[in-house]
Amino acid sequence: MYKKKGPLALFLIPTFTFLTFYLYYPFFMNIYNSFQQIGGLGESGRGMNTPWYENYLKIANDPLMRTALKNTMVLMVLTVVFQVGIALLLALLVDNIPFGGKFFRTVYFFPIVISATALGLLFNLIFLYNGGMLNQLLMNLGLIKENIDWKDPNHYFLTMVLPIIWQYVGFYFVIIVTGLNNISEDLYEAAEIDGATGLQRVRYITLPLLRPTLCTCLVLAITGSLKVFDLPWTMFVGGMPLDKSWLTGTYMYYQTMNMADVDYGSAIAVLIVVLGVIISRVANFLFQDKEDY
């Protein structure tokens, strides 16, 4: 069975066919569309743009696109540092407690199973100007005398980023916990016999052996932050306030759906993919263990 690969290939064909039609064909069409002039959703191309790379020039000169890229890059760094960082910390703590591990795994993973749109609405109520939970709390504690607009230009970024980071910590937590489970207990016992402290065991055993898992988390965090959409769109429709909160994902959607500029939206989508591939390859190169190549 294992010498003849033919039957195995047969199993791969249906999925390959499915992906060809529903992923790769749309993907390549999207690249083609980014050079076309398209009047709106559902319309076919009116011909090539003049020049054909017009949308890419537009990306380079669009100040809102620059805002989106800047915000996305900052979000990416925060995602990697805080989402993966907090997830790693929680995973190490949960891995070292003698009981209740399953309970904490469920608790920390729970935000993932809630729809991001529902979470967006939830946080909208928390940060609401009139009667929002946070303003009421601060008011009752006497910390503020007037409501704070948490979405104004002074507060919007934190208001947007906190829910995003909070939502996905559990996702990376579960991946890292799985990685920790794969590390042999024998290594820890041997280190303990040799007199290694808890921190030394983490530094010299856990982190090096978690490197492939952390690399996976890193790639997922980078690509995830490039295309994050639903939660920020629910909370900050239309790039509010004053076009300051655009992210690459929300700006692509806005151009495609609201402005009916389908070809420009396609070009932004291509940029997102290109950035995702480049940045994750660079991250992989920097952090991947050489033996893994």
Binding site: L128, D149, D152, P241
Partner: peptide, 13 residues
């Protein structure tokens, strides 16, 4: 005050 950051439902309320 929040006319530039609130939705229609919030302000109409």
């Amino acid at each position: 005050t929040n006319t530039l950051t609130a939705g229609d439902a919030d302000t109409f309320q």
